[in-house]
Nucleic acid binder design. Sequence first.
DNA 1: CTCGAACGCCGCCAAA
DNA 2: GGTTTGGCGGCGTTCG
Length: 347
Amino acid sequence: MTPDQGGPIDAADMILPGLTGASGVGRGDLPRVVILAYDGVNLLDLSGPLGALYYAGARPDLPWRPRYDIVVASLRGGMVRTTNGLALETRPLGELDGLGIDTVIVPGGSVAGHPPEPADLVDWMRRHAPDVRRVCSVCSGAFLLAAAGLLDGRRATTHWFWAQTLGDRFPEVRVEADKLFVVDGPIWTSGGMTAGIDMALALIEQDRGHAEAISTARGLVMFMKRPGGQAQFSTTLDVQARSDGAFSDLHGWIRQNLARRLKVSDLAEKAGMTERTFTRAYQSRIGQSPLKVIESLRIEAACELLTSKNVSVKQVAASVGFGAEQNMRRVFMRRLGVTPGEYRERF
DNA sequence: CTCGAACGCCGCCAAA
DNA sequence: GGTTTGGCGGCGTTCG
């Protein structure tokens, strides 16, 4: 998994194009991810998603193999200077013509003190976006997407510092400043810097499933789900957003009674339906099963308690309805990739 | 880690 | 005749 452990990744490092520049573009059938570079690009915006996608699905117990053909490219290729002072070797975008691109990621940066909107890159973006499955931005990279018209009428986010400016400059964009990242159809935008990693994990989850995303997060020593305050990940808001107010009374009641042992039959009774009708209606209107939502609510409540209060893990487990400590541990591992103890330790 | 019991989820189907 | 309801049972997951 990690090079310093002498794992099998060493050999693979030698052959990943775009990273080493050692070989040409193209890695068989892997989805091609193009990360745009330009003079003034922010290194962390670029390397965060790159690192996450590079390690996608990596596990310590299996030989590493790539999940993506990652290409760092610029208009002319060659050396690109990042804001942080490091120079990057890049491939020319022209090399990709006709090769098919699955995902484009535009990192943020600063060009002459402003968000990046170089006309030639904007033009490339506008021309190629229709043929790309997903277009993503990190931080002020959203300005480039906006300039190419890709964000018109769409929800999007950027670094909080730039949120106001983005909205003022592109009134057609529905800026959601408080989100880690926003997905609107094929257009993904993320907040500053490390939010790009969260977005990359979500890309991995969409492509390869939850388990691989979790194990990737674990490999990066990163949380699959950040602690509170991020509306993007708030189950409460998320569930409300897609339910058109359905079951809102029920959800209120659930939140008041999280500590209780909540059975589907109880919920069905509360909602005035039979069990079968309830599970069916819930799944279709909320998009998740009742248990999954309750589990998410419990995790959120538990995370809150773990970071803020000086109560034992056992007490936390009991007070959010996980019951035994062992239970909460299992759920944390499955959903977040860390144990409650590890979670607390880091916050 | 393992196990039996309990539970959640969902396809199926007949009834409304 | 098409749609919704709810009981049943099987399968997989969770709990303790």
